[in-house]
Simulated assay, not measured.
Amino acid sequence: MEEPIQIADFSEVTKFHGHSCPGIAIGYRASEIAVHEFFSRAVDEEMVAIVENDSCSVDAIQFVTGCTLGKGNLIFKDHGKHVYTFLNRDTGKALRISLKSSSDERDPEFAEARKKAFSDSATKKDLEEYEKIRNKTTEKILEAPVQELFEVEWVDMEFPEEARIFRSVRCAKCGELVSEHRIRVENGKMVCIPCFHNYSRA
């Protein structure tokens, strides 16, 4: 008989992230789905997460699933979308999780409180009210049925290449080390991206 899957407590995730908020709750719930439904047997780099935003939610995904940039199994696509795709290299399966509606859409009170709290005229009372409503909105996300929060679907997709280790070379301009797959050639010399003068006629 298999042991029940253990998922990090939400309080541990908020400690890692620094605060509790709707964004971290969204990432936590998405990770929870992936672990329970898909990755009970995936370990370490066999699990891959593709995230399409760089919001608070991604910290929860890193903490709960163990997918990180450093291991090469957290892939960031700058699409600005609450879409999270989890892949298991062992099984060849992929699970896509997309948020159905934003916190603002689900809770207009939260949207209004945030607007006041981030305005130039925000008072101490506005900030306190925002924190109270933010916590309430976060709790709603943690307690909501999965089908209310997300579209969850199995998808067919090409798996990304496994992470590789590249040698470092020295930039001919600044002298700093740069991974060879990120090098640019300028006037026959190897330079890093910040030093490279990009040519364009646009």
Rank of each mutant, 00 (worst) to 15 (best):
V152Y: 03
H19N: 08
R184D: 03
S119L: 04
Y199F: 09
V83Y: 01
F110D: 02
L142V: 11
V35L: 15
E148I: 07
F118V: 13
P108A: 07
G175P: 07
E176Q: 10
E45W: 01
K124Q: 04
V64L: 07
R182K: 15
K71T: 02
A202Q: 10
G92I: 12
H181Q: 14
T65G: 01
L177Q: 06
E46A: 12
G27C: 08
R114D: 00
E105K: 13
V152F: 00
E131N: 04
E109H: 04
V185C: 07
I5M: 11
E3S: 10
A60I: 10
S101N: 07
V146W: 05
D59L: 05
A25M: 05
A172E: 12
E52Q: 10
K81M: 10
L142F: 07
F63T: 11
W154L: 13
V35T: 11
I97V: 15
R170I: 15
N135M: 05
L87T: 06
L177W: 07
K125W: 03
P145W: 00
S102I: 13
P160Q: 05
L149P: 02
Y28R: 08
K77W: 02
F166R: 02
I5V: 15
E129R: 08
F16M: 13
D156Q: 06
P22W: 01
D44T: 14
E139Y: 01
L69Y: 03
V13Y: 09
R29L: 10
R170Y: 07
